[in-house]
Design a protein around this nucleic acid. Structure first.
Lengths: 338, 338
DNA sequence: TTGAAAGCGCTAACAT
DNA sequence: ATGTTAGCGCTTTCAA
């Protein structure tokens, strides 16, 4: 690894000069010197040492992506198509902006904090975290931060939170179901916390608005977190006389459920209607194709990075609640009863 | 951010002492001092500054994962379930070993190299790269390196290459098809380069062994890279009188193909049999469920990290070609003709 | 237009 | 058992 010092002495100039042309601070360097240094830089294959640069400048060029490990849902977080696409999208744009990405998957905010501090991370994107966790990090981490899909996040929080209008999405699905003649519904999701909880609230709102009962009896929650996926799917089938449609918290669960039902002789949508959420690959692959709510995960990631970079450059945003658009996608998994 | 220096002066001891207890080099420190320093460390919330540490020790605690952007297959690389699971698995184990992960997705080896150099990455895992690219990196990158699914990699290469016996897997699938009474087959994949090429060779070997013709006419390759996915799927349907089974290069393509065929009134496996490769989520979700070849992606990732860490600790390996086991999984997408 | 030198936080060789 | 010091590679202030 050739260093600035070496290049400088080899060229008989000072380190300052070399450093200056590297950083394009050429206003005070003679053209001849610039050319000479640039040539040497190129020929020697000079590459800056980030450790040293960070030390001297007290900034790292690293953007952290903080995610929380979800117990026993997938083999690992990135197997979840949402996180896969999101991290991929973030990585891509971070790279084009000449920053570096450091993932942090952990359910311990202290670890996360340590990580951010130890690497002197310049900015952080927090994904699908409870606002409690954000607050905890905030206590010690003072640099820019953008949230994606943060829940329990107060409207007037100082952080920017990029979300979908989850409630509205779920409301629309529910409304669509009701208008299609379904009046007895069930909710199938990991639980009623976080995003899944937001969606649940949206469903309930629609039920209320249409004057339908929405108590746990009339609109049962089948919780994967409590029963396990297999158990929950079994429960759906077992209780299916009580409803004509199942609203799923994600496409993945919807796809799994449809498969399970097909395996057990229950036809979708003839015997039972099913809806999803996300509109990812699963929605299009499962048969019947899923009626679901589309969001652009890539867009979410890109927006987050752009805003974070802006923040890091000192820009401020008026609006802290950024709601990305969604779109109901009607396919074949819902039976129209009227 | 509190520094060692601050703690030292506050406690009235030297920096060395503090550094020593941080690193557990306590053999030459009095118990009282140890306790005192540890207390101060904890109370002040001391966190090491990686930039400084790296600079002083000339090592970064960073492990790089190098992947090559695939043009136009997925929205981004991590959407591919193989990469998602792999990176997730690698991240997980890297973290437990107190290392940090830096992803590098690029199709430019010069960038990759620059990246590794600039961060002084301690070791690198290269995924699904052509051996040409490995060689290029190798010219300048001298630290430990482990390959995953590297193709064109000579048996006696100095690098450790973790693979599946792709050829054997494809051979087994083909053999299974032949034994099930299929004699006219087709190959549906991105192309015949890299992994897909290895698999293709395995198919051909089986064909040969069973005395069946294997020229392009008798065993057509339907190339997604050339025709695009839609076009290729159309081509499969169009030419389907020429074969009774289609071997797909991956579960994803198999799932997409099956869907496409269902949409066009072709039944699987009655009208046409289909096989996949990987046994990921898609294989179990698609209907009919896919007959495919299972590999453990998580195992691949974990092995790579463990070996890399060993290498970094100076251990050497005799065997450079590590073939992970695979397993044919027979489900419902192949019709048994006899 | 160019250069010298201090210092970022940490480690390690070498005193004491 | 503890402390001093040089130096890792780079940036930046200040001087020339």
């Amino acid at each position: 690894m050739v260093t600035i010092k070496e290049i400088a002495s080899q060229l008989g100039v000072s380190m300052t000069t070399v450093s200056n042309v590297i950083h394009g601070k050429t206003s005070e360097v003679s053209p001849a010197t610039i050319a000479m240094v640039q040539k040497a830089l190129k020929e020697s294959g000079y590459v800056p040492n980030m450790g040293a640069r960070n030390l001297a400048q007290n900034q790292s060029k690293i953007i952290g992506v903080v995610m929380k490990e979800r117990k026993g849902r997938y083999t690992n977080l990135l197997c979840d198509p949402f996180y896969g696409e999101l991290v991929g999208a973030i990585e891509k744009i971070v790279r084009t902006k000449d920053y570096y990405l450091m993932m942090n998957i952990s359910d311990n905010m202290q670890d996360t904090l340590k990580n951010a501090a130890t690497w002197n991370v310049d900015g952080v994107i927090m994904v699908s975290l409870d606002y409690e966790d954000v607050l905890e990090l905030r206590k010690s981490y003072k640099k820019p931060m953008v949230l994606i899909d943060c829940y329990n996040c107060p409207e007037d929080a100082p952080e920017i939170n990029i979300t979908l209008d989850e409630q509205k999405g779920a409301f629309d699905v529910t409304e669509y179901l009701i208008r299609s003649g379904h009046s007895r519904l069930a909710y199938f999701a990991y639980g009623t916390e976080g995003i899944a909880g937001e969606r649940y609230k949206g469903c309930v709102r629609a039920l209320k608005e249409y004057g339908l009962p929405w108590d746990q009896e009339s609109f049962p929650v089948i919780s994967i977190g409590e029963m396990g996926l297999e158990g929950a799917m079994e429960a759906v089938c077992f209780g299916r006389d009580a409803y004509t449609a199942v609203i799923c918290g994600s496409d993945y669960y919807a796809a799994r459920l449809i498969n399970y039902m097909e395996d057990h002789g229950i036809r979708v949508p003839d015997d039972l209607s099913v809806t999803g959420f996300d509109d990812n690959e699963y929605a299009r692959l499962v048969r019947p194709h899923l009626t679901t709510v589309r969001q652009s995960v890539t867009e979410k990631g890109m927006r987050a990075v752009r805003i974070l970079l802006d923040l890091m450059n000192g820009r401020t945003y008026e609006e802290h609640n950024i709601r990305l658009p969604f779109k109901m996608v009607v396919r074949d998994s819902v039976r129209v009863l009227r």
